[in-house]
């Protein structure tokens, strides 16, 4: 299963890219709402980008290319990826399909938090780098979380920033819920102080 409870460490991801040359890709496109009636996290990969992959009759749409990009595990997309609805199903669907990282010039706040909780690494790179990756679909690259570098086999490298806590959670397999539960004393003290307030 995915989510906090089974945080396996993530340190280095090497894979081919799949390029989605669109900006403002909202979570309704990543997984349409009609697939949200599930009470489980598993198995949502088959609905990933459902309406961009398939037409109303279930036929594969030409030009999208996801199903042809066998083994691609790094999604490269335009600015503001994952905007809109807070549905974590979007991160579940991407991870279930096999994606392990998303690269963009900007990633929407709620989606970024959801991705991190599901070992889907959100990586923000400068415009020229994302532009180059867009122009070279399917390239193989490595994301080194320890060194905070995106690397191409020819030696090209681009550094990226990531929140220190999120990085530690991924590298060491720290479970954020367990970490929060460990602050129980602070939480109880806070509740006590507030209860006494006028």
């Amino acid at each position: 299963m995915t989510g906090d409870a089974a945080m396996q460490p993530v340190s280095r991801i090497c894979a081919h890219t799949f390029v989605l040359p669109a900006e403002n890709v909202d979570t309704d496109q990543i997984i349409p709402a009609r697939f949200l009636t599930t009470t489980r996290r598993e198995g949502l990969g088959r609905h990933l980008f459902a309406d961009w992959r398939r037409d109303a009759a279930g036929r594969r749409r030409d030009g999208f290319g996801l199903e042809e990009a066998n083994g691609a595990a790094i999604l490269v997309a335009g600015r503001n990826f994952g905007c809109g609805s807070s549905r974590e199903h979007a991160a579940w669907a991407l991870a279930d399909y096999g994606f392990r990282a998303v690269i963009s010039t900007e990633i929407a706040d709620i989606f970024r938090a959801n991705a991190l909780r599901n070992r889907l690494l959100p990586v923000v790179l400068p415009e020229p780098d994302v532009g180059w990756l867009m122009a070279h679909p399917g390239v193989e690259l490595c994301i080194d979380l320890e060194a905070r570098l995106v690397e191409l086999p020819d030696g090209w490298r681009s550094p990226f920033d990531i929140d220190a806590f999120a990085r530690r959670c991924l590298l060491d397999g720290v479970d954020p819920l367990g970490w929060l539960l460990g602050r129980d004393g602070d939480i109880a003290a806070y509740e006590e102080t507030r209860a006494c307030r006028p």
């Binding site: 906090d4 991160a91 938090a113 959801n114 909780r117 954020p176 819920l177 929060l180 509740e191």
Partner: peptide
């Protein structure tokens, strides 16, 4: 918030 964080708030109110 996402569903994992819904779990965080249910369990810790934080």
């Amino acid at each position: 918030i996402g569903t994992t964080e819904v779990g965080h708030v249910l369990a810790t109110q934080c």
